[in-house]
Amino acid sequence: MDFIIGHYNYWIVIVLMMVGFYTVINRGNLVKKIIGLNIFQVSVFLLYISIGTVSGGAAPIATEGVELYSNPLPHVLILTAIVVGVATTALGLALVVRIKEAYGTIEEDEIHKCDHTL
């Protein structure tokens, strides 16, 4: 039981990661693929923060009388990764808009068909 509770976080992270991965590799709508990438990304964030968590620890803000803190390093890495993530998501969405303007569709197999008929 302790083993399951101790590893449950990691297993859910893997489930989320695989859901995101599946959305990306399964043929479909490009906006949905970007959402899949975002789910993958959030799963990586959860993995890092899970690794940095100390049970019974406080949030890493120095307070009088608190001895045990969570690990601040993963928080720093993920904090910047989230904002960089939204910037790259915006870039991906901009590419989707341009693809729509060039091909008239954002379904991947229709884009492939367009490429073959050219």
Partner: peptide, 26 residues
């Protein structure tokens, strides 16, 4: 998981800006 700063950022960025941008794309 005691990551207040990260939660703050995710709520502002993931639920705010990302959603708006995706709706704009749609």
């Amino acid at each position: 998981m005691d990551a207040a700063d990260v939660a703050f950022t995710e709520a502002a960025v993931g639920a705010g800006i990302s959603t708006v941008l995706m709706l704009a794309t749609m």
